[in-house]
């Protein structure tokens, strides 16, 4: 086991990776406010996976990293309306018990892990044909 990277340095690493676009092409993320020294609030986007109802859609969401991040996962909430079993249809909050990476979170996972997994979740055979709200709607 290596050195335990503290929250803020871990978030700076994720920020740099997000800014440089080194991550997965179909997902992006960054700080909601560029001068937030606590680095708590983040925005993310997911480009809907091909061969699904989500194709060519861009979903925005917000993530909140609390003081215990990355020992605890961030709270994740869709801004764009989406119809998925793991998302509360009233407010867009992702139910952590229904998304495996949040349910089985460990500190090696990142916000990018979550975005990629959500995108895979959208492409899942049982989710890729679910009827979706109009594209511009937000919670």
């Amino acid at each position: 086991m290596g050195a335990k990277v503290p929250r803020n340095f871990r978030l700076l690493e994720e920020l740099e990776k997000g800014e440089k676009g080194l991550g997965a092409e179909a997902c992006s993320y960054g700080l909601a406010e560029g001068d937030d020294l606590l680095m708590s609030n983040w925005n993310g986007t997911i480009l809907g996976p091909p061969h699904s109802v989500h194709e060519n859609r861009i979903y925005s969401l917000k993530m909140h990293c609390g003081e215990e991040y990355p020992d605890k996962p961030p709270a994740v909430q869709f801004i764009s309306q989406v119809n998925l079993p793991c998302v509360n249809p009233r407010n867009g909050v992702v139910d952590p018990s229904k998304l495996p990476c949040l349910a089985n979170w460990n500190r090696d996972m990142t916000m990018e892990t979550i975005l990629i997994e959500l995108r895979r979740y959208m492409a899942h055979p049982s989710h890729k044909k679910l009827p979706q709200p109009a594209e511009t709607l937000e919670y």
Binding site: N8, L12, L15, G34, L37, M39
Partner: peptide, 15 residues
């Protein structure tokens, strides 16, 4: 990293 806000050309808004 700085955790106190400071106005300095070599230190950014995130410290």
């Amino acid at each position: 990293r700085f955790m106190t806000k400071i106005y300095h050309p070599n230190i950014d808004k995130l410290g």
